[in-house]
Design a protein around this nucleic acid. Structure first.
Length: 920
RNA sequence: GCGCGUGUGGCGUAAUUGGUAGCCGCGCCAGACUUAGGAUCUGGUGACGAGAGUCGUGUAGGUUCGAGUCCUAUCACGCGCACCA
């Protein structure tokens, strides 16, 4: 009988569904293993072959772990809030919920065809009220917490309030927007509204005024990772800078823990490095420069405390709070004009221009080490959001300061021996200090490193400032002026934000007449009727961003139907964390940071057991498209084959890849593709029309999208699964190329043929040869799966099947073992074999075979014999032979004489089981 | 600019982790069965050479009995961050 993938796959997919084969329950008597995929956003375009790559890899691993006896949690769900469904709603008036559930249904049917072992009873959707109830709940907990730096964890805000009432701000070490200082008496005398405002300064979810990426095209603010080169990642609309009152999450409070946690994770070095980069820890000093003629100081942050003797001016960010304090009456007009100019520039324009600009404030600061007066300038190359928004400029040793100094003719003092600063600054942190002797501190002759340490110590001792660590990581903006997202459980009373009672959760997303902003510029929820509390207080009209629902979905899978808690203590203590997480590296600075933050917060408040959510992470590569081209001869309707196109003047034209097989064009189908090609003529090579190709992003407009459904239809899910893995290492990006799929399909047919020859009636021992083949396979496949190297394990299968075929094997036991090994990779065909072999239950529960090492022991060992490193011949030696015997057999071999050339060897190296090398 | 990563046949890749470079697959060549092949099976396939053999893992050095693997320099490509003081 032929291998009929359609019938086999339909039969076993039904069997798995009807018998709930992949449903899992908590079972404390068994060890757990949690395998997770990044859940998809169900877009209207459906799945293309790139999406399942990671899912197939994780499915293989999940099935393997299950066969090893682990209780495996392997769920799937949908990241259902997203801009495309909302844009579609704005255009058509169709509720995004409807669009989303249609897309979900399509995704589900596509996924089902590939034969994944997902437990669909645990499916979550972020837009489901039973799910987003807990997103809102977490927000409430964040609103009700502050970050205690001394305890290094989130604590209830009520503790802080109590402290304020008893001791004022004295002794508080909490993460906050700005440092506040007040006494208990002052606090107790404050009106409630004022107290609420001060508490807001400490909450982990807080309402803050911040500079945001405002996208007028989308009518919402965007996170930094949603903006690229000044335009929105989705839609490509221009983005501008704007100050707005927004909900924010105090992610920055967790910067150090997010950094430290990386060391304990099995993630790729490059991904960890990307996160370290994003967190951007830098150690330096915060120093005070007294302002000449005033009674306050300018605070600056620097990592180069050693360069203090080279400070020739100071620079403030245009948005700095110091600007109004330092602008002299004479410079007021100039400063005002500059600020106006900067305000109208978007971040993009500032970046593109890269033009040096700035203005003098009219004030001077005093260098605390030299007493020298130095001018204070304003320039947009200093960022308000980093450090203190003010710097000490050392043009000799900082390229930005250098450019500024050159432009405005400010002095440049070199501080490092041998540094030539006539053309450019010397930024490297190496060399011996010069010109660095003052009345109270002498750095001359020290190495830069020593000088930094020396200065820091001096600053602390003399109380000129303090040693400080700064992070690049900013707080996450948590408001979106959109409809399709989680509503905030927040209302406003007299302009003060307050939480709804927990019992009102979930706060459901209301219907709206229009998905566009209201005429007066309010977000779409402003269109909702009765969007108030029962008492009539207005509810928040912003919604939460996409990452709100995706930050903790892995926890909900543990206990998806619990209406009392996000996840029960029992379920959480059993499943704990994700053992293997598979997904794209593009989430490195978004989802993977937010999730870790979110989890750490939940850990702090005692809601989850583990501090880090994803123990091991594998980033699958991207599958690119492989576009095909035909070559039309200029001014004709004649197309020339790829290899012959050099003889003509041609234009390449993209052709739909469904008309192309192994780079050969189906010319008839091409004529029928477009009316203008109906009478196309072809110049063939070797009787065929060969297309050219290029690797590009997989997209509709390039006619290179491959739908997995088509592959499944033609070759079957098992072939698709094997082929996606066979393409190369999972982590690597590669173009989709169907040219090799026949080889993989051929392997399955051979496997099928091998099974058909198997003698199902007998139960004899395997021959020595069969046993060797089978055990070699077990060993190789087991170690490959552990290392996530699936392409090599598929090669091993091909070798084994070829060997068994040439051994004319009909042995039932051999086939039975091969079936167990095949199950994670090609579950449908394995299930078919499993049942034909007479087993009950699913092959998914078939025990993973162990290696019989004795089958792999060889009687003899072949040694390549090398002379001075070049292999000359091979000897076969009894496996029991020791080094000396191997050596003497090698040297006494007749072939050795030729290479020894009458000389005695200087040295002979024998590596047992490997090689003999004779040094002459 | 800074950081990370990758360079192996015509192509995708592999190499027991320092021990016979090129496994497996595609493609190609030859053959078998065929009226036919976008089917199946068998054999061959890094380059040069008639051959013995020589060369060969981006390039140039180094360490080693032995290097695709380790070290140094350099080039190319890819990714990430980017006025972060």
């Amino acid at each position: 009988m032929e291998y009929n993938h359609k019938e086999i796959e339909r039969r076993w997919q039904e069997y798995w569904r009807d018998n709930e084969i992949y449903k899992v329950t908590e079972d404390p008597s068994r060890k757990k293993f949690y395998v997770l995929d990044m859940f998809p956003y169900p877009s209207g375009a459906g799945l293309h072959v790139g999406h399942p790559l990671g899912y197939i890899a994780s499915d293989i691993y999940a099935r393997y772990k299950r066969q090893q006896g682990f209780n495996v949690l392997h769920p799937m769900g949908y990241d259902a809030y997203g801009l495309p469904a909302e844009q579609y709603a704005i255009q058509t008036g169709q509720h995004p919920e409807k669009t989303t559930s249609e897309n979900v249904a399509r995704y589900r049917s596509q996924l089902d065809k590939i034969g994944f072992s997902f437990d669909w009873s645990r499916e979550v959707r972020t837009c489901d009220p039973e799910y987003y109830k807990w997103t809102q709940w977490t927000f409430m907990k964040m609103f009700g917490s502050y970050y205690d730096r001394a305890l290094d964890k989130a604590m209830p805000i009520a503790d802080l309030e109590r402290h304020f009432a008893e001791h004022g701000s004295e002794g508080i070490n909490a993460a906050c927007g700005k440092e506040l200082s007040f006494t208990a008496e002052e606090w107790n005398a404050l009106p409630e509204k004022e107290r609420a405002e001060r508490l807001m300064n400490y909450r982990i979810a807080y309402l803050g005024e911040s500079m945001v990426n405002w996208c007028p095209g989308l009518g919402t603010v965007l996170a930094n990772d949603e903006v690229s080169e000044g335009v929105s990642v989705r839609g490509g609309f221009p983005v501008e800078q704007k100050v707005m009152k927004q909900w924010c999450l105090r992610v920055s409070a967790y910067a150090q823990r997010l950094l430290d946690g990386l060391d304990r994770l099995e993630w790729s070095d490059s991904l960890k490095e990307t996160q370290r980069n994003w967190i951007g820890r830098s150690e330096g000093a915060e120093m005070r420069f007294p302002v000449a003629g005033q009674d306050f100081s300018l605070e600056i942050f620097t990592t180069r405390a050693d360069t203090i003797f080279g400070v020739t001016f100071m620079v403030l960010a245009p948005e700095s709070k110091y600007v109004p304090m330092l602008t002299s009456p004479g410079q007021k007009e100039a400063v005002g004009a500059y600020l106006e100019e900067v305000r109208h520039k978007t971040e993009r324009e500032r970046q593109i221009e890269k033009k040096v600009s700035g203005v003098w404030t009219g004030s001077y600061a005093v260098n605390p080490l030299t007493g020298q007066e130095i001018p204070v300038w304003i320039s947009d190359y200093v960022l308000a959001g980093y450090g203190t928004g003010a710097i000490m400029a050392v043009p000799a040793h900082d390229s930005r300061d250098y450019a500024f100094a050159r432009h405005f003719n400010l002095p440049i003092i070199p501080l490092i021996e041998g540094a030539d600063v006539s053309e450019e600054s010397f930024d490297a942190k190496e060399g011996k200090m010069i010109n660095s002797r003052g009345p109270v501190l002498d750095l001359n002759g020290l190495e830069v490193r020593e000088a930094i340490a020396r200065t820091k110590k001096f600053i602390e001792e003399e109380d000129l400032g303090k040693v400080k660590v700064n992070y690049r990581l900013r707080d996450a903006i948590f408001s979106r002026q959109r409809y399709w997202g989680e509503p905030f459980p927040v209302y406003y009373e007299d302009g003060t934000a307050k939480l709804l009672p927990e019992t009102s959760l979930p706060l459901r997303l209301p219907p709206v007449a229009s998905y566009k902003p209201t005429p007066d510029g309010q977000p779409p929820l402003g269109n909702a009727e009765n969007w108030t509390t029962p008492e009539g207080f207005p509810l928040e009209v912003c919604t939460m961003p996409g990452f709100a629902g995706s930050s903790a979905y892995y926890l909900r899978y543990m206990d998806p139907h619990n209406s009392e808690a996000f996840v029960s203590r029992e379920a959480n203590e059993y499943w704990r964390d994700v053992d293997l997480y598979v997904g794209g590296a593009e989430h490195a600075t978004g989802h993977l940071i937010y999730s870790r933050f979110w989890n750490k917060f939940l850990h702090d408040i005692g809601a989850v057991a583990e501090d880090e959510p994803f123990r091991k992470l594998v980033n699958q590569g991207m599958i690119q498209g492989r576009s095909s081209f035909v070559y039309r001869i200029m001014n004709s309707n004649t197309f020339v084959s790829h290899g012959l196109r050099g003889d003509y003047d041609t234009t390449p034209i993209r052709v739909d890849i469904s008309l192309v097989n192994n780079d050969v064009l189906d010319t008839e189908a091409f004529r029928g593709w477009r009316p203008e090609y109906a009478d196309a003529e072809f110049i063939l090579e070797d009787g065929r029309y060969v297309c050219g190709h290029a690797v590009e992003k997989m997209s509709k407009s390039m006619y290179n999208v491959v739908n997995p459904d088509d592959i499944v239809e033609r070759y079957g899910a098992d072939t698709l699964r094997l082929y996606e893995m066979f393409l190369g290492p999972v982590e690597q990006s590669k173009p989709w190329d169907t040219n090799g799929i026949d080889g993989v399909n051929r392997f399955l047919k051979k496997l099928w043929g091998l099974f058909e020859k198997t003698d199902l009636e007998s139960d004899t021992e395997m021959s020595r040869e069969e046993s060797k083949t089978v055990n070699k396979l077990i060993k190789k496949v087991t170690s490959d799966i552990e290392q996530f190297s699936f392409n090599t394990s598929i090669s091993a299968f091909m070798i084994a099947v070829n060997e068994l075929t040439s051994q004319k094997s009909t042995n039932r036991r051999a086939m039975e073992t091969v079936t167990r090994l095949t199950a994670p990779f090609a579950p449908h065909i394995a299930e078919e074999f499993w049942h034909r072999l007479g087993n009950d239950g699913s092959v998914a529960d078939a025990e993973w075979p162990a290696v019989d090492e004795s089958a792999l022991v060889e009687d003899t060992v072949k040694y390549p014999v090398s002379f001075n490193g070049k292999t000359r011949f091979t000897i076969e030696v009894a496996a029991s032979a020791d080094k000396a015997e191997v050596e003497s057999l090698a040297l006494s071999n007749p072939a050795a004489a030729k290479w020894l050339d009458g000389k005695a060897p200087r040295k002979v190296i024998v590596v047992p089981g490997r090689i003999v090398n004779v040094v002459i």
